[in-house]
Amino acid sequence: MADEALFEFLHMEMVAHVHRSSAKDEKDQCISTLEALGFRVGQSLIERFTRECSRFKDELDTMKFLCKDFWSSVYKKQIDNLRTNHQGVYVLQDNKFKFLVQMSTGKQYMECAPQYLAFPCGMIRGALSNLGVNCIVTAEVSAMPACKFQIQIQRT
């Protein structure tokens, strides 16, 4: 168990490092590097979190696990709202997203939010991919610290 301050500072430094090492106009590159880091972490984490649980009935069951158990293990709270169009799109809303709580409660720093959400997005994608669900995850912020993660299932 590590203290959350330590983890937050680590995440901050990680974002700063990726930002520094990529060239100025390569913002997308920076986001995708962070996303890839998150992917790896998510993949391994879900492995450990699902050690003792039964198989998931269906996709929705998987999502519920993500919103409740996964989220509480990682962020110490559950997702506040889960919505779906029943056609492979899920929207997870967290009204107090951990990485944004310390940053702002309004519009300030809005333009910088994406780089702090890339890692969490990657984590979701990594976790789901390891559960056999391929998807695209994007984050949307309209007022910090609330954040919406949209999961779009890719069916092949």
């Binding site: 168990m1 203290d3 959350e4 680590l10 880091l37 998150g38 790896r40 984490l45 293990s73 990682v74």
Partner: peptide, 17 residues
Amino acid sequence: KVNGELFTLTYGALVAQ
């Protein structure tokens, strides 16, 4: 407290990067 595994794995990913 954050989950210890989360911290350890995140650090690992960073070192790998």
